[in-house]
Amino acid sequence: MSDAPLLEVVDLVKAYRLPRPRPFAPHPLRAALAGVSFSVFAGRSFGIVGESGSGKSTLARIALALDSPDSGLVRLEGRSLFDLSRGELRAMRAHMQLIFQDPYGSLDPRMRVEAIVAEPLAALGRASRAERRARVAESLEAVGLRASDAAKYPHEFSGGQRQRVAIARALITRPKLVVADEPVSALDVSVQAQALNLMSDLEREAGVTFLLISHDLAVVAHLCETTAGMFRGKIVEIGPTAALFAAPAHPYARELVDATPRLDRAPRSAPPTKPAPPPASAAGCPYAPRCAWAAPRCLKEAPALTEVAGQGRRAACWFPLV
């Protein structure tokens, strides 16, 4: 394990233009990412949790240079992705792959599994036909499918098997980083566990580091050493998963942990959550309107990520819970 991060995300900002409210009015902007920074180290998978609309998927797309940020940097192995030429970026994509949430939408219904799984190889464009076939077979077997499945079409598989096909596609170039955006939330619970176990096996055996994005803290806890909680385009807490899970420092992380069903404790009643109203003032903490612990200071000043409770944990809260 080297000390340099595998993936480094620095101060990403991205706002989307909403439709004009009336003709000739300026487009209103909606911030999807409001200054997100973190580092992922090789061999230590990183999890990002947050509710819908917190900017998780935007982050996934920008981390893979599929979308460009308004400002900020993404470095993979020290090389800034947005400074590469188109050709260099395409070559770089062999080191970073993507797994989607919906295994029905992410596989082209008109392609055979062989062509689907081999697509990242086709992009590199140097494998011979026999080599391609061998790599596809190897990749399919690594995810627990049969080499003979290569001749089938996606609709011949179940949801869990389709997600295995998607994982096989992501693995075929032997990437260092795989970004998985809600990889199991479309699967049945029993199949979810299989897929997660597969991913942690791959982390150990194939040397893949995952950037796992989910709304479900339990999924992230299964795989990731470090976890960040996101709310409204900002990281509110970041730290070792076990510590964060056991004693969340930020009230929003607490809300996420409490929303995760567990056998070893009775369900805690979460603070009543109203649909988040817009922040009281632009200057305040974005979570304050929903926070059960909010104090006057929270509405006036936004807290920055600061060290809490040692162990490299940081939270953006004036009154951390630990």
Binding site: R61, L64, L66, R90, A91, R93, A94, Q97, L98, F100, D102, G105, S106, L107, D108, E119, P120, A122, A123, L124, A166, R169
Partner: peptide
């Protein structure tokens, strides 16, 4: 998503 997946795989617009 499969079009996005193809882009993530590094395929160009013509492909």
């Amino acid at each position: 998503e499969y079009a996005l997946a193809a882009r993530a795989a590094g395929r160009g617009p013509l492909a």
